[in-house]
Design a protein around this nucleic acid. Structure first.
Lengths: 209, 209
DNA sequence: TTATATACAAACGTGAATGTTTGTAAAGGA
DNA sequence: TCCTTTACAAACATTCACGTTTGTATATAA
Protein backbone atom coordinates (compact mmCIF):
# COMPACT_ATOMS: atom_id res chain seq x y z
CA UNK A 1 0.00 0.00 0.00
CA UNK A 2 1.15 3.46 -0.87
CA UNK A 3 1.86 5.77 1.99
CA UNK A 4 -0.60 8.69 2.26
CA UNK A 5 0.10 12.32 2.94
CA UNK A 6 -0.65 13.62 6.42
CA UNK A 7 -4.06 15.00 5.54
CA UNK A 8 -4.92 11.75 3.77
CA UNK A 9 -4.04 9.91 6.94
CA UNK A 10 -6.31 12.06 9.05
CA UNK A 11 -9.04 11.61 6.48
CA UNK A 12 -8.71 7.84 6.73
CA UNK A 13 -9.04 8.14 10.50
CA UNK A 14 -12.17 10.24 10.19
CA UNK A 15 -13.62 7.83 7.65
CA UNK A 16 -13.01 4.98 10.05
CA UNK A 17 -14.79 6.83 12.85
CA UNK A 18 -17.72 7.67 10.59
CA UNK A 19 -17.90 4.09 9.33
CA UNK A 20 -17.75 2.75 12.87
CA UNK A 21 -20.64 4.98 13.91
CA UNK A 22 -22.72 3.85 10.97
CA UNK A 23 -22.14 0.14 11.47
CA UNK A 24 -22.43 0.36 15.27
CA UNK A 25 -25.87 1.92 14.87
CA UNK A 26 -26.87 -0.68 12.32
CA UNK A 27 -25.60 -3.91 13.85
CA UNK A 28 -25.01 -2.97 17.47
CA UNK A 29 -21.56 -2.49 18.96
CA UNK A 30 -20.91 -6.07 19.98
CA UNK A 31 -21.98 -7.57 16.66
CA UNK A 32 -20.07 -5.22 14.43
CA UNK A 33 -16.89 -6.67 13.12
CA UNK A 34 -13.79 -4.64 12.56
CA UNK A 35 -13.88 -6.08 9.06
CA UNK A 36 -17.34 -4.58 8.53
CA UNK A 37 -16.13 -1.17 9.67
CA UNK A 38 -13.04 -1.38 7.48
CA UNK A 39 -15.16 -2.43 4.54
CA UNK A 40 -17.59 0.44 5.08
CA UNK A 41 -14.63 2.84 5.17
CA UNK A 42 -13.10 1.33 2.06
CA UNK A 43 -9.94 0.09 3.75
CA UNK A 44 -8.79 -3.10 5.46
CA UNK A 45 -8.54 -4.01 9.13
CA UNK A 46 -4.91 -3.07 8.97
CA UNK A 47 -5.90 0.58 8.82
CA UNK A 48 -8.00 0.21 11.96
CA UNK A 49 -5.19 -1.42 13.91
CA UNK A 50 -2.88 1.33 12.76
CA UNK A 51 -5.11 4.14 14.05
CA UNK A 52 -6.75 2.42 17.03
CA UNK A 53 -5.79 -0.18 19.58
CA UNK A 54 -8.96 -2.24 19.22
CA UNK A 55 -12.74 -1.93 19.04
CA UNK A 56 -13.31 -0.20 22.40
CA UNK A 57 -10.61 2.32 21.54
CA UNK A 58 -12.31 3.11 18.25
CA UNK A 59 -15.66 3.27 20.02
CA UNK A 60 -14.53 5.85 22.55
CA UNK A 61 -12.78 7.87 19.87
CA UNK A 62 -16.06 7.99 17.98
CA UNK A 63 -17.86 9.05 21.14
CA UNK A 64 -15.37 11.75 22.08
CA UNK A 65 -15.71 13.38 18.69
CA UNK A 66 -19.34 14.15 19.44
CA UNK A 67 -19.80 14.25 23.19
CA UNK A 68 -17.24 16.84 24.17
CA UNK A 69 -18.36 19.65 21.83
CA UNK A 70 -21.99 18.88 22.55
CA UNK A 71 -21.69 18.93 26.32
CA UNK A 72 -19.84 22.19 26.10
CA UNK A 73 -22.44 23.68 23.83
CA UNK A 74 -25.46 22.74 25.92
CA UNK A 75 -24.02 23.87 29.24
CA UNK A 76 -22.47 27.01 27.84
CA UNK A 77 -25.53 28.32 26.04
CA UNK A 78 -28.08 27.65 28.74
CA UNK A 79 -27.53 30.74 30.93
CA UNK A 80 -27.03 33.04 27.97
CA UNK A 81 -30.50 32.85 26.45
CA UNK A 82 -32.33 35.41 28.55
CA UNK A 83 -30.75 36.59 31.80
CA UNK A 84 -34.09 38.07 32.80
CA UNK A 85 -35.77 34.66 32.69
CA UNK A 86 -33.58 31.61 33.44
CA UNK A 87 -36.51 29.25 32.84
CA UNK A 88 -36.44 30.26 29.20
CA UNK A 89 -32.80 29.21 29.18
CA UNK A 90 -33.67 25.78 30.51
CA UNK A 91 -36.45 25.48 27.98
CA UNK A 92 -34.19 26.57 25.13
CA UNK A 93 -31.47 24.09 26.04
CA UNK A 94 -34.01 21.27 26.10
CA UNK A 95 -35.30 22.27 22.69
CA UNK A 96 -31.71 22.47 21.50
CA UNK A 97 -31.11 18.86 22.53
CA UNK A 98 -34.14 17.79 20.50
CA UNK A 99 -33.02 19.87 17.56
CA UNK A 100 -29.64 18.18 17.65
CA UNK A 101 -31.21 14.76 17.57
CA UNK A 102 -33.46 15.71 14.69
CA UNK A 103 -31.12 17.65 12.46
CA UNK A 104 -27.62 16.52 13.33
CA UNK A 105 -27.32 13.00 12.01
CA UNK A 106 -23.97 12.41 13.68
CA UNK A 107 -25.33 13.43 17.07
CA UNK A 108 -28.50 11.41 16.61
CA UNK A 109 -26.68 8.27 15.53
CA UNK A 110 -24.26 8.58 18.42
CA UNK A 111 -27.13 8.97 20.91
CA UNK A 112 -28.78 5.96 19.32
CA UNK A 113 -25.69 3.84 19.84
CA UNK A 114 -25.19 4.90 23.44
CA UNK A 115 -28.84 4.38 24.34
CA UNK A 116 -29.91 1.38 22.30
CA UNK A 117 -27.00 -0.30 20.56
CA UNK A 118 -24.46 -0.84 23.31
CA UNK A 119 -24.09 -3.04 26.38
CA UNK A 120 -22.67 -1.39 29.48
CA UNK A 121 -20.27 -4.15 30.32
CA UNK A 122 -16.54 -4.88 30.57
CA UNK A 123 -14.59 -2.31 28.55
CA UNK A 124 -17.80 -0.37 27.97
CA UNK A 125 -18.83 -0.28 31.61
CA UNK A 126 -16.91 2.95 32.07
CA UNK A 127 -19.39 4.52 29.69
CA UNK A 128 -21.93 4.38 32.48
CA UNK A 129 -19.98 6.59 34.88
CA UNK A 130 -19.17 8.89 32.00
CA UNK A 131 -22.85 9.33 31.17
CA UNK A 132 -23.62 9.81 34.86
CA UNK A 133 -20.95 12.46 35.19
CA UNK A 134 -22.20 14.37 32.16
CA UNK A 135 -25.67 14.21 33.63
CA UNK A 136 -24.48 15.57 36.97
CA UNK A 137 -22.82 18.50 35.28
CA UNK A 138 -26.00 19.25 33.39
CA UNK A 139 -27.99 18.96 36.62
CA UNK A 140 -25.71 21.50 38.26
CA UNK A 141 -26.34 23.92 35.42
CA UNK A 142 -30.06 23.33 35.75
CA UNK A 143 -29.91 23.84 39.49
CA UNK A 144 -28.21 27.20 39.11
CA UNK A 145 -30.83 28.24 36.59
CA UNK A 146 -33.67 27.29 38.91
CA UNK A 147 -32.01 29.06 41.84
CA UNK A 148 -31.71 32.11 39.69
CA UNK A 149 -35.36 31.79 38.74
CA UNK A 150 -36.35 31.59 42.37
CA UNK A 151 -34.37 34.70 43.22
CA UNK A 152 -36.20 36.49 40.46
CA UNK A 153 -39.46 35.28 41.97
CA UNK A 154 -40.37 33.34 38.84
CA UNK A 155 -40.37 29.87 40.34
CA UNK A 156 -43.54 28.36 41.69
CA UNK A 157 -43.83 28.24 45.49
CA UNK A 158 -42.76 25.11 47.33
CA UNK A 159 -40.33 23.98 44.64
CA UNK A 160 -36.80 23.12 45.69
CA UNK A 161 -34.34 24.10 42.94
CA UNK A 162 -32.12 21.08 43.43
CA UNK A 163 -35.02 18.66 43.32
CA UNK A 164 -36.54 20.52 40.43
CA UNK A 165 -33.28 20.27 38.54
CA UNK A 166 -33.12 16.56 39.11
CA UNK A 167 -36.67 16.11 37.94
CA UNK A 168 -35.91 18.08 34.80
CA UNK A 169 -32.89 15.91 34.22
CA UNK A 170 -34.95 12.77 34.71
CA UNK A 171 -37.46 14.23 32.27
CA UNK A 172 -34.87 14.95 29.60
CA UNK A 173 -33.31 11.53 30.07
CA UNK A 174 -36.64 9.81 29.60
CA UNK A 175 -37.53 12.04 26.68
CA UNK A 176 -34.31 11.25 24.84
CA UNK A 177 -34.76 7.52 25.35
CA UNK A 178 -38.37 7.53 24.25
CA UNK A 179 -37.65 9.83 21.33
CA UNK A 180 -35.01 7.41 20.11
CA UNK A 181 -37.18 4.35 20.67
CA UNK A 182 -40.11 5.93 18.84
CA UNK A 183 -38.59 5.29 15.45
CA UNK A 184 -41.75 5.72 13.40
CA UNK A 185 -42.49 8.90 15.29
CA UNK A 186 -46.11 8.17 16.10
CA UNK A 187 -45.86 8.26 19.88
CA UNK A 188 -43.35 10.76 21.14
CA UNK A 189 -41.48 12.58 18.40
CA UNK A 190 -44.39 14.70 17.25
CA UNK A 191 -45.18 15.85 20.77
CA UNK A 192 -41.72 16.20 22.23
CA UNK A 193 -41.44 19.98 21.91
CA UNK A 194 -44.82 20.68 23.44
CA UNK A 195 -43.96 18.26 26.24
CA UNK A 196 -40.94 20.38 27.03
CA UNK A 197 -43.06 23.50 27.06
CA UNK A 198 -45.54 21.86 29.41
CA UNK A 199 -42.72 20.72 31.64
CA UNK A 200 -41.37 24.24 31.93
CA UNK A 201 -44.75 25.92 32.24
CA UNK A 202 -45.53 23.85 35.29
CA UNK A 203 -42.53 25.41 37.03
CA UNK A 204 -43.60 29.00 36.62
CA UNK A 205 -45.26 30.78 39.49
CA UNK A 206 -47.69 32.52 37.18
CA UNK A 207 -48.93 30.53 34.25
CA UNK A 208 -48.12 32.61 31.19
CA UNK A 209 -50.35 32.60 28.15
CA UNK B 1 -27.45 -38.93 31.47
CA UNK B 2 -30.29 -40.17 33.57
CA UNK B 3 -33.73 -39.08 32.54
CA UNK B 4 -35.46 -36.78 35.03
CA UNK B 5 -39.02 -36.82 36.31
CA UNK B 6 -41.39 -34.20 34.93
CA UNK B 7 -40.97 -31.83 37.83
CA UNK B 8 -37.19 -32.22 37.63
CA UNK B 9 -37.41 -31.23 33.98
CA UNK B 10 -39.32 -28.08 34.75
CA UNK B 11 -36.86 -27.32 37.50
CA UNK B 12 -33.98 -27.58 35.03
CA UNK B 13 -35.81 -25.17 32.76
CA UNK B 14 -36.30 -22.68 35.57
CA UNK B 15 -32.67 -23.03 36.62
CA UNK B 16 -31.62 -22.27 33.06
CA UNK B 17 -33.77 -19.15 32.99
CA UNK B 18 -32.42 -17.99 36.33
CA UNK B 19 -28.85 -18.71 35.26
CA UNK B 20 -29.38 -16.87 31.99
CA UNK B 21 -30.68 -13.82 33.82
CA UNK B 22 -27.71 -13.83 36.16
CA UNK B 23 -25.07 -14.17 33.44
CA UNK B 24 -26.86 -11.78 31.08
CA UNK B 25 -26.75 -9.10 33.78
CA UNK B 26 -23.12 -9.83 34.52
CA UNK B 27 -21.60 -10.14 31.05
CA UNK B 28 -24.22 -8.54 28.84
CA UNK B 29 -26.47 -10.50 26.53
CA UNK B 30 -24.21 -10.61 23.50
CA UNK B 31 -21.12 -11.67 25.42
CA UNK B 32 -22.71 -14.42 27.44
CA UNK B 33 -22.02 -17.83 26.09
CA UNK B 34 -24.54 -20.61 26.23
CA UNK B 35 -21.76 -22.59 27.88
CA UNK B 36 -21.54 -19.98 30.64
CA UNK B 37 -25.27 -20.20 31.24
CA UNK B 38 -25.21 -23.99 31.25
CA UNK B 39 -22.29 -23.96 33.64
CA UNK B 40 -24.05 -21.53 35.97
CA UNK B 41 -27.09 -23.81 35.94
CA UNK B 42 -24.99 -26.91 36.54
CA UNK B 43 -25.83 -28.59 33.25
CA UNK B 44 -24.37 -28.69 29.75
CA UNK B 45 -25.36 -26.85 26.59
CA UNK B 46 -27.34 -29.89 25.58
CA UNK B 47 -29.92 -29.00 28.19
CA UNK B 48 -30.29 -25.50 26.78
CA UNK B 49 -30.80 -26.74 23.24
CA UNK B 50 -33.37 -29.19 24.53
CA UNK B 51 -35.48 -26.54 26.26
CA UNK B 52 -34.84 -23.56 23.98
CA UNK B 53 -34.18 -23.00 20.33
CA UNK B 54 -31.23 -20.67 20.82
CA UNK B 55 -30.06 -17.67 22.83
CA UNK B 56 -32.80 -15.22 21.76
CA UNK B 57 -35.42 -17.83 22.55
CA UNK B 58 -34.00 -18.26 26.03
CA UNK B 59 -33.75 -14.50 26.41
CA UNK B 60 -37.41 -13.88 25.63
CA UNK B 61 -38.49 -16.78 27.84
CA UNK B 62 -36.59 -15.13 30.68
CA UNK B 63 -38.25 -11.82 29.90
CA UNK B 64 -41.75 -13.21 29.67
CA UNK B 65 -41.44 -14.80 33.07
CA UNK B 66 -41.14 -11.36 34.64
CA UNK B 67 -42.75 -8.83 32.33
CA UNK B 68 -46.22 -10.26 31.98
CA UNK B 69 -47.07 -10.55 35.68
CA UNK B 70 -45.47 -7.18 36.39
CA UNK B 71 -47.32 -5.28 33.66
CA UNK B 72 -50.54 -6.77 34.87
CA UNK B 73 -49.82 -5.85 38.44
CA UNK B 74 -48.90 -2.22 37.80
CA UNK B 75 -51.83 -1.46 35.54
CA UNK B 76 -54.32 -3.38 37.62
CA UNK B 77 -53.51 -1.78 40.93
CA UNK B 78 -53.32 1.81 39.80
CA UNK B 79 -57.02 2.69 39.82
CA UNK B 80 -57.74 0.73 42.94
CA UNK B 81 -55.70 2.69 45.44
CA UNK B 82 -58.10 5.49 46.30
CA UNK B 83 -61.07 6.11 44.02
CA UNK B 84 -61.57 9.50 45.67
CA UNK B 85 -58.13 10.66 44.53
CA UNK B 86 -56.72 9.16 41.31
CA UNK B 87 -53.49 11.11 41.67
CA UNK B 88 -52.71 9.02 44.74
CA UNK B 89 -53.12 5.98 42.53
CA UNK B 90 -50.59 7.29 40.04
CA UNK B 91 -48.24 8.11 42.85
CA UNK B 92 -48.66 4.69 44.43
CA UNK B 93 -48.00 2.85 41.19
CA UNK B 94 -44.82 4.83 40.68
CA UNK B 95 -43.65 4.00 44.16
CA UNK B 96 -44.56 0.39 43.48
CA UNK B 97 -42.26 0.32 40.47
CA UNK B 98 -39.40 1.60 42.60
CA UNK B 99 -40.20 -0.89 45.32
CA UNK B 100 -40.06 -3.71 42.78
CA UNK B 101 -36.64 -2.62 41.58
CA UNK B 102 -35.36 -2.37 45.12
CA UNK B 103 -36.79 -5.46 46.72
CA UNK B 104 -37.47 -7.90 43.90
CA UNK B 105 -34.10 -9.06 42.68
CA UNK B 106 -35.53 -10.89 39.70
CA UNK B 107 -37.40 -7.80 38.54
CA UNK B 108 -34.43 -5.55 39.14
CA UNK B 109 -32.00 -7.78 37.28
CA UNK B 110 -34.40 -8.12 34.38
CA UNK B 111 -34.80 -4.34 34.17
CA UNK B 112 -31.06 -3.99 34.29
CA UNK B 113 -30.62 -6.33 31.36
CA UNK B 114 -33.29 -4.66 29.25
CA UNK B 115 -31.98 -1.17 29.97
CA UNK B 116 -28.21 -1.57 30.15
CA UNK B 117 -27.09 -5.03 29.09
CA UNK B 118 -28.76 -5.58 25.76
CA UNK B 119 -28.47 -4.23 22.23
CA UNK B 120 -31.72 -3.55 20.39
CA UNK B 121 -30.66 -5.15 17.15
CA UNK B 122 -31.49 -8.11 14.89
CA UNK B 123 -33.37 -10.75 16.87
CA UNK B 124 -33.58 -8.37 19.83
CA UNK B 125 -34.92 -5.44 17.81
CA UNK B 126 -38.46 -6.64 18.48
CA UNK B 127 -37.81 -5.88 22.13
CA UNK B 128 -38.06 -2.21 21.27
CA UNK B 129 -41.63 -2.35 20.00
CA UNK B 130 -42.51 -4.56 22.93
CA UNK B 131 -41.22 -1.99 25.39
CA UNK B 132 -42.99 0.78 23.48
CA UNK B 133 -46.26 -1.11 23.55
CA UNK B 134 -46.03 -1.72 27.28
CA UNK B 135 -45.33 1.97 27.73
CA UNK B 136 -48.37 2.97 25.68
CA UNK B 137 -50.61 0.75 27.76
CA UNK B 138 -49.24 2.33 30.91
CA UNK B 139 -49.75 5.80 29.41
CA UNK B 140 -53.38 4.97 28.71
CA UNK B 141 -53.87 3.98 32.31
CA UNK B 142 -52.20 7.20 33.42
CA UNK B 143 -54.34 9.25 31.06
CA UNK B 144 -57.55 7.77 32.48
CA UNK B 145 -56.35 8.54 35.98
CA UNK B 146 -55.58 12.15 35.11
CA UNK B 147 -58.93 12.53 33.37
CA UNK B 148 -60.59 11.20 36.45
CA UNK B 149 -58.60 13.65 38.57
CA UNK B 150 -59.72 16.53 36.39
CA UNK B 151 -63.35 15.51 36.68
CA UNK B 152 -62.93 15.54 40.44
CA UNK B 153 -61.45 19.02 40.16
CA UNK B 154 -58.14 17.89 41.62
CA UNK B 155 -55.97 18.58 38.59
CA UNK B 156 -54.20 21.88 38.20
CA UNK B 157 -55.68 24.27 35.64
CA UNK B 158 -54.32 24.29 32.14
CA UNK B 159 -53.07 20.73 32.24
CA UNK B 160 -54.09 18.39 29.45
CA UNK B 161 -54.55 14.85 30.80
CA UNK B 162 -53.06 13.16 27.74
CA UNK B 163 -50.01 15.37 27.74
CA UNK B 164 -49.69 15.06 31.49
CA UNK B 165 -49.81 11.29 31.19
CA UNK B 166 -47.07 11.31 28.60
CA UNK B 167 -44.93 13.55 30.75
CA UNK B 168 -45.40 11.22 33.69
CA UNK B 169 -44.44 8.31 31.52
CA UNK B 170 -41.35 10.15 30.31
CA UNK B 171 -40.56 10.88 33.93
CA UNK B 172 -40.87 7.26 35.04
CA UNK B 173 -38.84 6.08 32.07
CA UNK B 174 -36.03 8.48 32.91
CA UNK B 175 -36.24 7.65 36.59
CA UNK B 176 -35.92 3.92 35.97
CA UNK B 177 -32.93 4.42 33.69
CA UNK B 178 -31.16 6.75 36.08
CA UNK B 179 -32.00 4.61 39.07
CA UNK B 180 -30.39 1.63 37.35
CA UNK B 181 -27.37 3.60 36.21
CA UNK B 182 -26.80 5.03 39.67
CA UNK B 183 -25.31 1.81 40.98
CA UNK B 184 -23.60 3.27 44.04
CA UNK B 185 -26.82 5.10 44.87
CA UNK B 186 -25.28 8.50 45.52
CA UNK B 187 -27.13 10.45 42.86
CA UNK B 188 -30.65 9.22 42.30
CA UNK B 189 -31.56 6.20 44.37
CA UNK B 190 -31.78 8.02 47.68
CA UNK B 191 -34.01 10.74 46.25
CA UNK B 192 -36.17 8.75 43.89
CA UNK B 193 -39.23 8.50 46.14
CA UNK B 194 -39.29 12.19 47.00
CA UNK B 195 -38.87 12.96 43.30
CA UNK B 196 -42.03 11.02 42.60
CA UNK B 197 -43.85 12.92 45.31
CA UNK B 198 -42.65 16.23 43.88
CA UNK B 199 -43.72 15.14 40.42
CA UNK B 200 -47.24 14.35 41.62
CA UNK B 201 -47.55 17.37 43.89
CA UNK B 202 -46.92 19.66 40.95
CA UNK B 203 -50.05 18.27 39.30
CA UNK B 204 -52.41 19.05 42.12
CA UNK B 205 -54.57 22.14 41.90
CA UNK B 206 -54.09 22.89 45.56
CA UNK B 207 -50.69 22.14 47.00
CA UNK B 208 -51.33 19.84 49.94
CA UNK B 209 -49.19 19.96 53.01
C1' DT C 1 19.77 11.35 -3.28
C1' DT C 2 19.29 7.96 -0.05
C1' DA C 3 17.56 6.13 4.13
C1' DT C 4 14.01 5.67 7.21
C1' DA C 5 9.71 5.87 9.04
C1' DT C 6 4.92 5.82 7.66
C1' DA C 7 0.33 4.05 6.44
C1' DC C 8 -1.63 0.83 5.36
C1' DA C 9 -2.77 -4.28 2.71
C1' DA C 10 -2.48 -9.08 2.93
C1' DA C 11 -1.67 -13.31 4.99
C1' DC C 12 -1.34 -16.19 9.12
C1' DG C 13 -2.43 -18.62 13.33
C1' DT C 14 -5.52 -19.16 17.15
C1' DG C 15 -9.31 -19.58 20.15
C1' DA C 16 -13.84 -19.76 20.89
C1' DA C 17 -18.82 -20.05 20.20
C1' DT C 18 -22.36 -22.17 17.56
C1' DG C 19 -25.43 -25.73 15.87
C1' DT C 20 -25.66 -30.61 15.16
C1' DT C 21 -25.15 -35.30 15.89
C1' DT C 22 -24.61 -39.21 18.55
C1' DG C 23 -24.82 -41.69 22.81
C1' DT C 24 -27.37 -43.20 26.95
C1' DA C 25 -29.69 -44.04 31.30
C1' DA C 26 -33.96 -43.97 33.12
C1' DA C 27 -39.16 -42.77 33.14
C1' DG C 28 -43.62 -43.95 31.68
C1' DG C 29 -46.89 -46.28 28.89
C1' DA C 30 -48.61 -50.75 26.84
C1' DT D 1 -41.84 -56.80 31.18
C1' DC D 2 -40.47 -54.61 27.23
C1' DC D 3 -40.32 -50.85 24.29
C1' DT D 4 -40.33 -46.20 23.27
C1' DT D 5 -39.58 -41.67 24.36
C1' DT D 6 -37.43 -38.37 27.24
C1' DA D 7 -33.86 -35.31 28.98
C1' DC D 8 -30.08 -34.48 28.75
C1' DA D 9 -24.27 -35.25 28.19
C1' DA D 10 -20.51 -35.55 25.16
C1' DA D 11 -18.20 -35.24 21.00
C1' DC D 12 -17.80 -33.19 16.39
C1' DA D 13 -17.42 -30.00 12.58
C1' DT D 14 -17.59 -25.38 11.09
C1' DT D 15 -17.43 -20.70 11.05
C1' DC D 16 -15.51 -16.51 12.26
C1' DA D 17 -13.53 -12.61 14.62
C1' DC D 18 -9.45 -11.31 16.65
C1' DG D 19 -4.61 -9.93 17.17
C1' DT D 20 -0.16 -10.34 15.00
C1' DT D 21 3.10 -10.49 11.56
C1' DT D 22 4.93 -9.57 7.25
C1' DG D 23 5.20 -7.10 3.03
C1' DT D 24 5.48 -2.74 0.48
C1' DA D 25 5.07 1.64 -1.84
C1' DT D 26 5.88 6.21 -0.83
C1' DA D 27 6.16 10.70 1.83
C1' DT D 28 9.52 12.96 4.25
C1' DA D 29 13.64 14.07 6.61
C1' DA D 30 18.63 14.29 6.30
Amino acid sequence: MARKTKSDTEQTRQQLIAAARKVFALRGVSRTTLAQIANEAGVTRGAIYWHFKNKPDLFFAMLEQVSLPMIHRINENLPAVDPRDPLRGVQASMHEILRLMKEDEIARTTFEIVVLKCEYVDEFASLESRVIKTGCDFMQTLKRAYEEAREQNLLRDGIDPAQCAMESFVFIKGLIHLWLSDVDGTIVRGKAHSLIDAHITMRYKQVLY
